[in-house]
Amino acid sequence: MRPSTVPPNLLTDNPELYEARFPDPDRLAGRWAEDCLGRHGAGPCVLDVGCGTGRDAAHLHGAGRTVTGADISEAMLTHARVHHPGPEYVHADLHGFDLGRSVFDAVVCLDSALLYCHTNEQLDAFLSCCRRALTPGGLLVAEMRNGAYFLGRTELLDVPTVKEFTWRGTVHRSTTVLTVDRTAQLLRRSRVWTTDDGSPPVEQRSAWRLLFPQELRRLLAAQGFEVLELHDGPGPRTEPPWHEGLLPGRTADADRLHLVARLTGSA
């Protein structure tokens, strides 16, 4: 899910290309989320905020849950309804969503979608919307980049990273540079896409908020959430990745951050 002010994105505006670039045949992210929900006794009704192509929402639906997937990209939602049926898919902006009378036992927010809230006001608005959408005792499960990882570490910054994959016979190549905007507390990404079919290069820019573990705890507490888990792994994007039977870690130092919080009262 991207806010409406974010410019077009080659991958998220082309869902089939997105799934080709980020294959997840084993539904690792969905399985991890279901494990969190199961371990903490979440009820059956789940809202997947920033559901994208719907793969994780459909996995949770297949696990027996009643799932609503929400995203701001109509292209993603159309793809999800066709290719990953089962959940209800609705258009919503994570900066402020109101699903009416719908009430959920858990909100799931994966793959750094929460970090498209760039300002404190946007973060407060997102968490406030989650609070209103949840039943008392409901869970918030999130997975994202870890701002603390970039304290003193520069190996991922300011150096072009080139990746390529082939889709429908065309080689797609991305050259990505990450930089830290310390004033805005953002991890900015510049990416140039090229292909071997003669198409002109496509440049796009995006950013994630760099959230630190203790900062996140304070934001959640202000909205009436109790943190149950906050750690750097194992998770669906860690190395090695999470698998069934692994319990959450105790540190928050690596490049991914995993959160489970329970709504305990009103802010």
Rank of each mutant, 00 (worst) to 15 (best):
A106M: 05
G100C: 01
F126I: 11
H61N: 13
R131Q: 11
T68Q: 02
T78P: 01
L77D: 02
R81M: 09
L60M: 12
H79Y: 15
H79V: 06
L94V: 09
D111F: 15
R81D: 04
T78W: 12
L123V: 07
T119D: 04
A106Q: 01
S112D: 12
G50P: 03
A63M: 11
C117P: 02
I72M: 13
S102Y: 09
Y116G: 01
D124G: 13
F97G: 00
H91M: 12
R101L: 15
R55W: 08
G62T: 07
D105Q: 03
G86S: 05
C117Q: 11
T68A: 05
L134M: 05
R132F: 06
G43R: 02
A106C: 03
D48H: 08
H118R: 10
C130Q: 05
L99E: 03
R81I: 08
G69A: 03
A63S: 11
Y89V: 05
T78I: 13
L127E: 03
D93F: 08
A92Q: 07
L99Q: 00
C109S: 10
L47E: 05
G69D: 01
L60D: 04
F97E: 01
C45E: 15
F126L: 14
A80F: 07
P85N: 11
H95T: 11
A125H: 09
L110G: 00
C45T: 15
S102H: 12
G69K: 07
C130K: 09
L60H: 08
L47N: 07
H83C: 12
L94F: 10
V82S: 13
V103C: 10
L123S: 07
D98F: 11
C109L: 08
A133E: 03
A80Y: 09
C129Q: 07
L134C: 02
H118F: 05
L110F: 09
H84S: 04
C129K: 07
G64I: 04
D105M: 05
R132W: 06
H59R: 13
C117D: 00
L134A: 02
G62L: 06
G64N: 06
G62P: 03
A133I: 01
M76T: 06
D48T: 07
N120Q: 13
T53S: 15
G64C: 05
S73V: 03
V82Y: 14
G43F: 08
A133V: 02
L114A: 15
C130H: 06
H95Q: 11
L123Q: 09
A63K: 07
G62N: 02
F104L: 04
H83G: 10
T78N: 14
R132Q: 09
C130T: 11
H84C: 08
A63W: 08
V107S: 04
A70P: 00
M76H: 06
C45Q: 14
H79P: 03
N120W: 12
L60Y: 09
G69N: 00
H59E: 14
